[in-house]
Design a protein around this nucleic acid. Sequence first.
DNA 1: GTGAAAGCGCTAACAA
DNA 2: TTGTTAGCGCTTTCAC
Lengths: 357, 357
Amino acid sequence: MLRLKALWEAKFKMNLRDLSLKLGVSQTTVSRALNGYPEVSEATRARIVAAADRYNYQPNTRAKSLATGRSMAIGHVIPLSAEHEMVNPVFGDFIAGAGEAYAREGYDMLLSVVRQQDEQKAYREMSSKRSVDGVIVHGPRLDDPRPALLNELSMPFVVHGRVPERDEDYAWLDMDNRRAFRRATEFLLDLGHIRISLINGHETMDFARRRRNGFNEAFEGRGLGVAFDLQAAGEMTESFGFHHAQRLLALPNRPTAIIVSSILLAIGVQRAISEAGLRMGTDISVVTHDDALSYLRNGDELPLFTATRSSVRDAGMRCAEMLIERVKNPENGLAQELWEAELILGQSTGRAPNSSF
Amino acid sequence: MLRLKALWEAKFKMNLRDLSLKLGVSQTTVSRALNGYPEVSEATRARIVAAADRYNYQPNTRAKSLATGRSMAIGHVIPLSAEHEMVNPVFGDFIAGAGEAYAREGYDMLLSVVRQQDEQKAYREMSSKRSVDGVIVHGPRLDDPRPALLNELSMPFVVHGRVPERDEDYAWLDMDNRRAFRRATEFLLDLGHIRISLINGHETMDFARRRRNGFNEAFEGRGLGVAFDLQAAGEMTESFGFHHAQRLLALPNRPTAIIVSSILLAIGVQRAISEAGLRMGTDISVVTHDDALSYLRNGDELPLFTATRSSVRDAGMRCAEMLIERVKNPENGLAQELWEAELILGQSTGRAPNSSF
DNA sequence: GTGAAAGCGCTAACAA
DNA sequence: TTGTTAGCGCTTTCAC
């Protein structure tokens, strides 16, 4: 049994010392060879690389980061929606993209899911425990304390989104939500819709404010008054979408189009429309956020709006790249990128039922 | 500038040595006091704890795990759907639950998002780089090589779900998918539905097989033939749900009820129903998987089926607890838990339009 | 081009 | 009850 263990250890739990002993060179040389330092003869390097690979040697990350002072990990603090205790579904897509960048660059991804009241503590801990080299900030809010906190902690970070009224002194990547919602609204106005409703998330979230601004701008740009009675903001849940859509559909002068700000809201809205016996795309147009990729693969036209699953994924990858860049070269300037939202308006966004087109 | 940095370091980058020097005791004593060892006088412990807290001292995790040999981190390897390059949306909920358990127990959560072909490499790396103490296995498949691999690597693990035909020699937690789908189908049969369709995920995924088995058992239990023409399995995407539902609805003898196996499929199905001008719950019943919590908070009846978002969250928490337990006491037996699915059938699952009820 | 030795920040025998 | 000391596995001067 003990022999078996020893054998097994010999095969798998190889460390730098073991390897250097086996090769008859010093640990230093092995380390240098494997880390691509130039002062190793090509012959030795080749021998070492071959052995490392033959014995399946991988450096112990904990030892490595203790020695280098870099943890080679990036932290993500995921806020749990307060009322709802659930994670925003776009998060999975963001992570998929970020994960790809981390894998490529040799970073680990550390996740911490916390309630909002524990958020600051989570960042402080990541900092004082030295568990990450940088963090991605998700879901910036009005008066968000995080950029200041992270600067105080000297923790490199990139914000996915922007803090309202404040986008000077930190690195961020954001979709142009205002522009996207303006374009979508204009598209519906062009089709002859006038009674257009917006079902949005709470405006403590930056993107929700920007989306409403874009929506309003479309009306103002046409010299039309904004129908404030058709705007709503709430929890981005199926239930809110369902109930609010029911309310809208029961209106004497109900909207002919609805712009929906999130996927969960959209599910509820769809259900309300279907239960009311209305046809999407005929009786009522719905512009929403969709699983674009799966439609695109089928060559379909999309019932689509703003940050689609695949663009969130791309954003995740880019945020990760920006942060890694920042961690490696802290002296470089702050990258700030505003992305054009993918916007393909199709099938479910038909004409207004009584438009003159 | 250098002075500022020193000041700052003094305030935040406190380490064990600094703290012990400041207190005039040895590092050992500080370590012992902070880690709750009994052989420290209460007076010293109190002083030390107070100072730690005053200077915001947190042990460096990398150093700690190098010294202890435990990394205090759990790994999750998230498979990216091959065709689709997206993360399954239930994943966010699972993570939320798991994250809570990790936070409570002082573990970090390490995520690695990989394409299926790189999956084994990801596990091997986690093992050889010593970055985690254990892993959660997601989405077990037919002939899944992971349990064997992880056993070979002596890496503690818990499977969320089960590997088909094989549930003896590893720890797992699964929803009783078979039973849940049988109950849901029976419920529809009781309401007078006969033409019931199942839109399922690919049967390489264990839960999909079990769900179909449950569905079929309900028919068999009533002495009814199973309508195989109404069963479909495909990618769990909105697009597949949409197109397949369109096909079903165009049938001369179209189903009066549809059981849908995932949230993305359901969105597509809803859209097809709405575009066809049919009413959910009146013309056609849909049994699906939903954002239960947001409805429950409103005291609504649920249009609900099997692993709801909140039960996935609970499963995540329990899997994490099982794994932590296993990491701490490897000699204990393998925990295996089969959970009853939450199942509240409501509003959208009305009677068959021409049933005799 | 290679190696010896110190040290990253912590824990855990072993002594006292 | 407290302190001394020797690592954990790696990187990185510095000397050869």
